Computed example of a mutant assay.
Amino acid sequence: MTRAVRLLAVGATAALTLTAAACSKPSSGTAGTTGAASASKSVSQDKKLSIGFLGFAKANSFAQAGWAGVQEYAAAHNASATFLDANFDAPTQVNQLQDAVTSKRYDVVIIQANDGTAMVNPVKQAIAAGITVVAEFTPIGGRYDTAEPQVPGTINIIDPPTVNGKGLAKLGIQACKAANVSKCQVAYLQGFANFPLDTARTKAAVDDLRAGGAEVISNLVGGYTQDSGRTAMQNLLQAHPGVNVVIGSSQALEGAAPLAKGKKIQFIGNGGSTQAFAAVNSGAWFAIYDVPEKADGAKAAELGLDKARGKNVPTSMATCDLTKFACLGTKQTLAGVTADYSD
């Protein structure tokens, strides 16, 4: 996260299992409320507020899922919302937030950070200007292994990239066991090369796969589109025709999987679109890492608006703690669950 690029997860990028109501309670790991989280400017409850959504990219299906949740919640709770499209470019996103601080156009900003480290200073500027800041899905800061706030005063609804990578690896080891081979060959298709969250996720996934006994035979860039996934799969099959398990963004696998017709390859997608759900339910894919992204967007809007209106809100929650199956979506765990976005 499909991620002009459509998603990530990340991709990555990357996925939706809960209703917004199901996301309304904080996880057991929630940091609770703090003065920093509740002390932004308080406004009249009947004043219409504005939200700026700094999503990964407007053409990205995963970002669009979060955006849909933001829009729906804002419309029902006396607020407007605007998508600020950085198209996966970190410097553009930094400039967008700096412009928002200067213009004072938004009461709340919800950020899917393309580069968490680059966003630290502009986020501090936004908080100092009285803007409520919500980090959604990706961290704001240099650590990619925690959902806890790295910038005081932010609200964080995070799926740490390393947690995502470890989850993909766990599913990969399960798929290796299902493949029942003496030496399981796993190909991990990275989202973007040199993308900070992808780099952290990839390392976590590859390290855990190897620790679990798998032979990681490639680290190709699969991207977040069917076309990029198809190209990566063509290269993979030429170099490693005996591959047993392929892991990548769900969008990439939608392009990659058809090339494996007649081969016994287990696919694991990162992202829970309707297409990914259908692939798992049909048995074409082994599993998906399923993030409740539309619900996350709605929750981000809820907490952001509540804080801007002077209410106490939790400072952090880990996205996958809000699901009953820790985002690990197999045919069994997805039974009765419906995806709420499409690639």
Rank of each mutant, 00 (worst) to 15 (best):
A287Y: 02
Q64E: 12
G212I: 05
A298S: 14
G29F: 14
L334Y: 04
N244L: 05
Q112M: 10
L237M: 14
A118G: 01
H240I: 06
G52N: 09
R143T: 14
I247D: 01
K41I: 10
A232K: 02
S218G: 00
A179T: 01
Q275W: 04
E72H: 09
A81S: 15
A239R: 15
K47E: 14
A298Y: 09
M317Q: 11
L209Y: 13
Q275V: 11
Q45F: 08
N235L: 13
P152Q: 11
E215S: 11
K331M: 02
E293S: 07
V151E: 07
Q185R: 06
T225F: 10
T138M: 09
V206P: 05
A300S: 14
T138V: 10
P152A: 15
D343R: 03
L84F: 13
S249T: 12
T319V: 15
L259T: 00
A169K: 02
A4G: 02
S273Y: 07
V120S: 00
A301K: 04
K263Y: 06
G142I: 01
P152N: 13
D208H: 10
N95T: 14
P161V: 07
T225W: 04
P314L: 05
A169F: 12
G167R: 03
L303Y: 13
V109H: 07
G272D: 03
E72D: 15
D115Q: 07
Q150I: 14
Q266D: 03
T19F: 11
T315L: 09
L322Y: 02
K331N: 09
A12N: 06
A204Q: 01
P149R: 10
R210M: 13
L171H: 02
V108L: 13
R3D: 08
I158L: 11
F277D: 01
S61D: 11
N281I: 01
L236A: 04
S282Q: 07
T82W: 01
Q251S: 13
A74N: 05
V313Q: 02
R6G: 04
A169Y: 08
Q96E: 13
E293Y: 12
K170W: 12
D343M: 11
F56W: 13
L237R: 01
A301G: 07
F83M: 14
K170F: 11
K311R: 15
L322C: 07
F62K: 02
D343T: 06
T274H: 06
C327D: 04
Y224K: 00
G248I: 08
T2W: 13
G66D: 08
K307R: 15
T315G: 14
F192W: 09
V10K: 00
P314Q: 03
L171V: 00
I268W: 04
G130P: 14
A205P: 12
Q266E: 08
N244D: 15
H77Q: 02
T162Q: 15
T323R: 07
K25F: 15
